[in-house]
Design a protein around this nucleic acid. Structure first.
Lengths: 124, 124
DNA sequence: CCGGATCCATAAGGATACTG
DNA sequence: CAGTATCCTTATGGATCCGG
């Protein structure tokens, strides 16, 4: 572990300067982390994810699932039935992210408490 | 720790649905995580951060540092001297993020190795 | 059911010039 | 040194309609 330097790592047809950026990119944006968050609890279908994340549009969901698939973080399994059935689950690399997601969740909880305590102290 | 649900958390004049989203937002985008990454090694001046992150513009650096300051993740200390001297460092909440950043870094390193091994297997 | 395609509004980010 | 201000380009995300 060292300081991020210009080492020009090439992954997923992208060039990064450090391993940290690579990880951030996988979680980046409004949706990808949230999708992974739900997949930690097991395989999910498209419609289930839409129910779990009501504010996401079908377009965004598909788009982000494709990105995660291309990045090797989620599996996409298509069952050749009518009507179509598609399932999403975490790959091995995806599973390895879960403990970190949980740490982020806990940090978030702590952060919320601290911030709200500060806000209260300010208005008092 | 439970599934993210619609709980409407209000922090930093934003409404979130779960603690996980709050944490993601602090690291979100191309730059904020990287800035925090460098601040883990100690207090840094504006010009030092620009040297460490050559591809960032002054505008983006200022903007992201302000966001992190407003979010209570970094301190900004202004010394009333000529020429101006401004130092940035992590707050207590910021420090708590460092172990998670390191985990992300390590996951990124692992991920890069795995992906490059797969690419090699594909072309072979 | 699980999407793809298209169009459009807004936000994010870069280039450049200027300032206490 | 550490920023602001302005302009501009690009990326992101939403709405809507269509299809196997």
């Amino acid at each position: 572990m060292s300081v991020c330097e210009s080492c020009g790592i090439r992954v997923n047809n992208q060039v990064y300067n450090c391993a940290f950026q690579v990880a951030i990119d996988v979680l980046d944006g409004k949706w990808k982390g949230l999708i992974l968050w739900y997949l930690q609890f097991g395989t999910k279908r498209n419609s289930e994810l839409r129910r779990l994340i009501p504010s996401i549009t079908q377009k965004m969901l598909t788009q982000k699932l494709r990105e995660l698939e291309d990045e090797g973080i989620v599996y996409r399994t298509v069952y050749p039935v009518v009507p179509p059935k598609v399932e999403y689950s975490l790959t091995e690399q995806g599973e390895k992210l879960i403990p970190i997601l949980k740490s982020l969740y806990e940090w978030g909880e702590d952060y919320i408490v601290e911030r709200q305590a500060e806000d209260k102290a300010q208005t008092a």
